[in-house]
């Protein structure tokens, strides 16, 4: 792990505003890690962000209102030529189709109840580029 403070821009896509509040709480005041959090409600809005900003990592809710699941939503994000990591957040990550996650362009799965500061820190270290502040 890096002991120096690093900063990343994280795009969080979820159709439930409550999840935004939870994520904001998790991401603030983290030692060693500054997170610039961008929240959007849909894949379409997320695609717009990808055209406007440099995003280091995306956390994507598995079942958004307008999309079936990550198998349809992740390719839309990849179609924007985004090559950073995409993590799928779900209340149930044990469904069999998650084994094919890489085939659809996603990098990892994580349960909503598994997300805490230590896990977010681990995920950033494992998947996202490290930009020392």
């Amino acid at each position: 792990m890096n002991t120096q403070a690093t900063k990343i821009k994280l795009l969080f896509v979820d159709d439930d505003p409550t999840e935004f509040d939870i994520m904001k709480r998790l991401c603030r005041d983290m030692d060693h890690q500054k997170i610039d959090l961008v929240c959007r409600h849909s894949v379409e809005e997320a695609c717009e962000v990808l055209g406007e900003q440099d995003i280091d990592m995306i956390l994507l809710d598995n079942q958004l209102m307008m999309d079936d699941d990550f198998r349809s939503s992740t390719p839309k994000l990849r179609a924007q030529h985004y090559t950073g990591p995409i993590g799928i957040v779900s209340s149930n990550v044990r469904t069999d189709y998650f084994q094919d996650i890489e085939e659809y362009g996603a990098d990892f799965r994580i349960g909503k109840d598994e997300l805490d500061r230590q896990t977010i820190f681990y995920i950033i270290n494992e998947f996202a580029p490290k930009n020392v502040v």
Binding site: R78, G84, P85
Partner: peptide
């Protein structure tokens, strides 16, 4: 390659 295969660079 990530762009061609619609994957992340990490993958």
């Amino acid at each position: 390659i990530a762009v061609i295969l619609s994957l992340s660079e990490h993958t």
